[in-house]
């Protein structure tokens, strides 16, 4: 069975999408136009992440991948988009040879090659969306625009944060986020605002936002394993929080798919243990400042309430140590 105590973190800090910009960052609809519109990124952790993702998909296929039978055309649209993005950005790592509908995709990092007939799912070992998604480390969730909402019709999810492809399949954006209403300081229903914003996203105009959370000594937390990770959260102490608690950042990208009339959610999840925050002093300061000021309701919503105090205490001790060192250096 898949080990959740995986020692995985971002090693090239330049690839870590650090989420905080001001010191009172909370919830906001901080959507920005996506600058690098190509979703494929190769980091030092690429191979580790892709292999771990595939292991999860193989071990728990029903939990990690869901699709409806009517989505086949949408799946090919996705496959074509991501393969062409990969080839365009990293021609040394990926190749796509088209001979009419006979396509060959090569992944030179993993030394893999697959020839298939575009439009014929029987020529691939997995469904087209699943197959294509297995070459990239992100999670891919396709939410189809029907009436004025979005419905999860395909999901490949290997980094869940209180989410499950199995459970959430077929649900609307509102059903996934409701019935817990989350209201901003000025009383806006944030879910409603985000949904309306997503409705306005056009093909050719991708957007992005960053979401963050903490993760206590796990790769991911889904509903299926709640009995396992829920009790574990209280095992966090100020002494072990530096290693076991990781800042979990989810860089989200939104693409309107023109044939599917859907929004493709691309979720790039990266982790940084709290102890590694010291590698960049401003990251440490911002994170400490944000975490010690989290409202109760938000900590509950994010599922971090049971170990947030221990995490903040860890950061406080480090901060105190750093300040003492600075003082000693000055005096010395």
């Amino acid at each position: 069975m898949f080990t959740q105590e995986l020692d995985f973190k971002t090693t090239d800090l330049n690839t870590f999408p650090f989420p905080f910009r001001s010191d009172n960052y909370r919830y906001s609809n901080d959507l920005r136009k996506l600058e690098d519109t190509n979703l494929v990124t190769i980091t030092p952790e690429y191979e580790l992440q892709v292999r771990a993702k595939r292991r999860l998909l193989d071990e728990q296929p029903e939990v990690r991948y869901q699709s409806f039978p009517h989505t086949m055309e949408m799946q090919w649209e996705f496959l074509e988009m991501v393969f062409e993005m990969a080839v365009e950005k990293y021609p040394q790592h990926f190749e796509l040879i088209k001979n009419g509908d006979e396509w060959t995709f090569k992944n030179n990092i993993l030394k893999e090659e697959q020839t298939f007939t575009f439009g014929d799912p029987s020529t691939l070992p997995y469904e087209p969306y699943d197959f294509a998604g297995r070459h990239f480390h992100q999670d891919f969730v396709l939410m189809v625009n029907r009436e004025d909402n979005f419905y999860l019709e395909i999901g490949q999810v290997s980094y869940a944060a209180l989410f499950s492809a199995h459970w959430n399949t077929g649900m609307s954006f509102d059903e996934i986020h409701g019935p817990v209403p989350f209201v901003s300081r000025n009383g806006d229903n944030l879910i409603d605002r985000v949904r309306k914003f997503l409705l306005g996203i056009n093909p050719g105009e991708p957007w992005t936002r960053i979401n963050w959370n903490l993760m206590a000594n796990r790769w991911d937390v889904n509903y299926e394993t709640m009995d396992v990770w829920e009790p574990q959260r209280s095992l966090i102490t100020p002494e072990n929080a530096g290693k076991l608690v990781r800042l979990r950042v989810e860089e989200q990208k939104f693409y309107r798919m023109s044939r599917s009339n859907a929004i493709l959610f691309v979720l790039n999840t990266q982790f940084l243990p709290l102890e590694d925050l010291q590698l960049r002093q401003e990251w440490f300061d911002l994170t400490y400042s944000v975490l010690q000021d989290i409202p109760e309701a938000m900590a509950e919503y994010k599922g971090i309430a049971p170990y947030l105090p221990q995490s903040v205490e860890y950061l406080r001790r480090v901060d105190e140590k750093l300040k003492n060192q600075a003082l000693q250096t000055q005096e010395g």
């Binding site: 459970w167 059903e175 019935p179 817990v180």
Partner: peptide, 8 residues
Amino acid sequence: GPFYSKVR
């Protein structure tokens, strides 16, 4: 829980 799924 409070969530209901039409599919499930």
